[in-house]
Each structure stands twice: as structure tokens, then as C-alpha cells.
Simulated scan of single mutants.
Amino acid sequence: MSAPNKSYDPVEVEALKPEAIERMRDEALAAFAAAGDLDALQEAKVAHTGGTSPLALANREIGALPPHAKAAAGKLVGQARGAVNKALAARQTELEAERDARVLVEEAVDVTLPYDRVPAGARHPLTTLSERIEDVFVAMGYEVAEGPEVEAEWFNFDALNIGPDHPARGMQDTFFVKGPEGHEEESNIVLRTHTSPVQIRSMLDREPPVYVICPGRVYRSDELDATHTPVFTQVELLAIDEGLTMADLKGTLDHMVQSLFGPDMKTRLRPNFFPFTEPSAEMDMVCYVCRGDSVGNPDRPCRTCSSEGWIELGGCGMVNPRVLVAAGVDPEKYSGFAFGFGIERMLMFRHNVEDMRDMVEGDVRFTRPFGMEI
């Protein structure tokens, strides 16, 4: 076995030459200085301080040197690696400071600005009021019933005792659906002019007693102006049971207006005529603004009720026996009452809306003040 080669010169190892070590160090320092962000610095760190970096490979060559040469070579490589690590730490601190300063500018939050700059939504007031009316009657034991908006003439007119010669069946009041080719005038289909057909369908589908409320859109050939619209929302009520009288109708009306307008509200009935009720009446309620105090009092005029003290709300009455027969209900055993009114009109009363066109134009400036109700 030969003795160790004590005359081995580390300078003869290319990677351990002083000029090679200096070059590796300088390349690492230049790469760190050129890194523009922390990601680039991380790539330079791996390339110049990782396990396969030039200085790491040179450090491995020291193990092959004789003992007396290891110290000098180790010192040379160690000083270079130390300078590289120091430069890496300094550059990382500098880039982190730049990042933090940039984040403070780019992600700054002005705590004096409103936090809710996204506008709050609002349900349409017609939807809200319709559901509130439904809640009043559901609490009384009524059921919400719905029906088609495209309806057969029989349900819309005939079953409701509206004869073929009634003016409401004319083209000036009713939208008729065009029939098939060659029979355009014989479709017998209309856009419902009221929600009363739902009452007929309810009596046909249910055995008495029947207590339903029927909200929904209806169609009439009216011009769109401040007080009329060809498409509006109506709600009707039907009660069929044994022994019902006008007194039950009056009590129901009083409860409704008190629930919607206040506990001191009252209603009155004025005789009128409707084909589907007998006797029939117009329903008025006390003016919710002046409470009747403007009547005969020129010092306190009321624009809402024109100083009459009452506001007309809708029509009502006892269900005509002919309607009961058409729906298969025995008029000798059962009686019933019904009433109906437009929700747009009630919305105008409750919230002083002056122009009905505001309800249908879809402008959020109209709906937003009503807010959101659940």
C-alpha cells in the first residue's frame, strides 16, 4: 500500500483554484443583485447555493485533498460561500422591504370610504304588498289559489254569469287570442280580464267549504297612463260555506283593511251591480289620510279622498246562485261571498304613488325606496 501523496497541490484541482472560486462568488453576487423580485431571487438562490451549485461542487473536491491542503482550500471556499450567503440575505431583506412598500400602496384601504358601495337591492312593492295581503288571509284559514292567465271564455265569462252580449266581452275591453288558421275569430280563448276564473276552477276542484284567495295578473285593453295599465295585478277572495251572509263579508273586509291600513279603519258597502254577485256592492274604506275629518271642513281639505272621507277600494257581494250552479255547487245548501280589487290601486293609496306608470317601467329609483321585506 502506497503512502499518502503529501506533495499533492490543491491548485492543480481546477475547481479549487483561487480565481475559479472568485469567479463563482462573483457570479452568485451578480445574480442576486440582478434579481428583480423574490421569485427571481429564489431561482438565483437555488442556482448558486443549492446542492448542485458551483461552490457546493467545489466544496466536495476538498475531501480528496491531503490533510495539509484541506485547511487552505476549505478556508478559500468557506469565505466565498459566506460572502454569497451574506449577499443573499441582504438582497432578500431589500426585496421584501420593496414588496411590503408596494403592497401598502397597491392594497391600501381607505377606511373613511363607505363599506357598502354595492347598492342594496329591493323587491318590487307590488310583490311585497301582494304577499302581505296573502299573509292576512292565510292567517284566517284561506288558501292561495292560482290559475292560467290565458283562459277559456267559459271560465272568464259564461261561468260568471256574463252573457254573450255583455259589453265586457267586446274587443274594446278584452284581448282575444287568435285562433288557428282559417278560424282566427273562433278560438274562444282570452287573456283573463280578472282573476275570477280561478274562483270557478277552485269550486270545481274542491268540495265545499271553499276559502281561497286568488292573486295574479290580468289584462284589459286600457291605455297606459297615470291611473290605468293594460296589465295589472288583482286579488280576489271567495268563501263558500253553509250559512254565509253579508255580515260575514263585512267583517272580513273590516279585518283586511285594519290589517293593512291600521286598527281604526272601517269599511262601508254601497249598492251596485255585478253579474257574478247578488246582492252586489262597492266597498269603500275610510280615507287613511284624513280619517274623514276633511268632510265639510274647508280648512282641512284632503287631496287623497277629495274631502269625501271615503276611498273606493273594489267590488264585492254574495256569490250569484247561477255561478254556484255553473261550478257544481248546490245553492240551496251553500252560499258564499267574494270581493276583488287591484293591488296597484292599493299601493297608490298606501304609499301616495301618483303615477301608475312608475310601477311598470322597471326603474330601480322607484323600487329602491321600498326596501327589502321578507
Rank of each mutant, 00 (worst) to 15 (best):
E184T: 11
E184N: 11
E185F: 12
E185G: 10
E185R: 13
E186S: 14
E186H: 12
E186W: 12
E186L: 10
S187P: 08
N188H: 15
I189W: 07
I189A: 09
I189Q: 14
I189M: 14
I189K: 10
I189T: 14
I189R: 13
I189C: 07
L191E: 04
L191G: 03
L191F: 08
R192C: 05
R192S: 06
R192G: 05
T193D: 02
T193R: 02
T193K: 02
H194D: 02
H194M: 05
H194G: 00
H194I: 04
H194P: 03
T195G: 04
T195M: 06
T195V: 08
T195E: 02
S196A: 09
S196R: 03
V198R: 01
Q199H: 06
Q199N: 03
Q199E: 08
Q199A: 01
I200D: 00
I200H: 00
R201P: 00
R201S: 02
R201H: 03
S202R: 00
S202L: 02
S202V: 01
M203P: 01
M203Q: 01
M203R: 00
M203L: 08
D205H: 08
R206D: 08
R206M: 09
R206K: 13
E207G: 04
E207K: 14
E207H: 08
E207N: 08
E207R: 12
P208N: 09
P208V: 05
V210K: 04
Y211C: 07
Y211F: 15
V212Q: 00
V212K: 00
I213G: 02
I213Q: 02
I213S: 01
C214S: 13
C214K: 04
C214I: 06
C214Y: 06
P215C: 03
P215L: 05
P215D: 07
P215N: 07
R217P: 02
R217Q: 12
R217H: 12
V218S: 04
V218I: 15
V218Q: 05
Y219L: 09
R220D: 07
R220V: 07
R220F: 07
R220I: 07
R220P: 06
D222N: 09
D222L: 03
E223Y: 12
E223W: 03
E223K: 13
L224D: 10
L224N: 14
L224K: 13
D225P: 13
D225F: 12
D225W: 12
A226S: 15
A226E: 14
T227H: 10
T227V: 14
T227G: 10
H228F: 13
H228W: 11
H228N: 14
H228L: 14
T229S: 15
T229M: 10
T229P: 04
P230K: 10
P230S: 12
P230C: 10
P230M: 13
P230L: 12
V231G: 05
V231I: 15
V231M: 15
V231E: 12
V231Y: 07
F232E: 07
T233L: 10
T233W: 11
T233I: 08
Q234M: 13
Q234D: 11
Q234I: 13
Q234P: 11
V235C: 07
V235S: 03
V235P: 01
V235N: 02
V235A: 05
V235W: 04
E236T: 08
E236A: 11
L237W: 07
L237Q: 04
L237E: 06
L237I: 11
L238C: 03
L238Q: 02
L238N: 03
L238E: 00
A239E: 06
A239P: 06
I240F: 02
I240Q: 01
I240P: 00
I240C: 04
I240Y: 01
